[in-house]
C-alpha cells in the first residue's frame, strides 16, 4: 500500500517537473508562429504580410530635415516606402544608393519614398542626403516617437528598417536590416501590381 503510494508520488513529481519544462519550451515555440506572414525567398528579414493580416501603420506628423511639417496621413492612397535610417549607420549608408535608384524607378508608378532619420543631427543628416543624392524627404525622429509608434505594429528593432505601406495605410512588407534591390522591387511589384518602369 505504502510503496504504491510512494511510487505515485514520485510519478507525480516527475510529471510536474516535465510539465514545467514543457510549458517553458512551448512558450518559446509559440512565440515563433503567427499567420499571414511569409518570407521573401525564405529570408526571415524580408517579411510579407498577406492582405487581411497587414498591421496598420500609425500616423505621425513631424518636421522634415528642411524644416517643413509633414503628416504621414497625407500619403494615404499611395504606396509608401518608409525607410528608417541614420547617417551614422553603416548598412544605411550601404543601402542608400539602392534606395535612391528604386525611388527613381518607382516614381512613375506613384510610389512615394519617405525617410525617418533616427538618432541623428540635422547637420549630419543633411550632409548624408546631399552626399547620396537622396531626392525624397526625410523626417527627423529626434523624440523617438515615430520609431516607438511603428514598433507597436512591426518589430522595428534597429536601423535600417524599410517598410512598404499599401494604399490603405497598412504595412504590406518589411525588410529588417539592409534592403537589397531585388527585395525592394519584389515587394513593390507585389504591392503596386507593377514592375519597375
Amino acid at each position: 500500500m505504502f510503496r504504491g503510494k510512494r511510487r505515485a508520488v514520485v510519478l507525480v513529481a516527475a510529471v510536474c517537473t516535465g510539465a514545467l519544462l514543457a510549458v517553458v519550451l512551448l512558450a518559446g515555440w509559440a512565440s515563433g508562429g503567427s499567420s499571414g506572414v511569409s518570407y521573401l525567398d525564405g529570408n526571415t528579414n524580408a517579411v510579407l504580410y498577406a492582405a487581411g493580416h497587414r498591421p496598420l501603420a500609425p500616423d505621425f506628423t513631424a518636421s522634415t530635415l528642411t524644416g517643413s511639417r509633414l503628416s504621414f496621413s497625407s500619403y494615404r492612397g499611395r504606396v509608401v516606402v518608409l525607410n528608417f535610417w541614420g547617417s551614422w549607420c553603416v548598412p544605411c549608408r550601404e543601402e542608400a544608393p539602392t534606395l535612391a535608384v528604386v525611388a527613381e524607378q518607382y516614381q512613375r508608378a506613384g510610389v512615394a519614398f519617405l525617410g525617418v532619420d533616427v538618432r541623428d543631427t540635422t547637420a549630419s543628416a543633411e550632409a548624408f542626403v546631399r552626399n547620396f543624392g537622396v531626392t525624397y524627404p526625410s523626417v527627423s525622429d529626434s523624440s523617438s516617437q515615430i520609431t516607438l509608434a511603428f514598433t507597436a505594429a512591426v518589430p522595428v528593432s534597429g536601423t535600417p528598417t524599410t517598410l512598404v505601406v499599401d494604399r490603405t495605410g497598412h504595412i504590406a512588407g518589411a525588410v529588417f536590416g539592409q534592403a537589397t534591390y531585388s527585395e525592394l522591387t519584389a515587394m513593390l511589384a507585389k504591392v503596386t501590381g507593377k514592375t519597375a518602369g
Binding site: F84, V118, R119, S142, S143, S144, Q145, T147, L148, T151, P155, V156, S157, G158, T159, T161
Partner: peptide, 10 residues
C-alpha cells in the same frame, strides 16, 4: 537635451 524611447533601436 535629447530624448530616447525604450525600443531596441534606441
Amino acid at each position: 537635451g535629447s530624448t530616447f524611447a525604450d525600443t531596441a533601436s534606441q
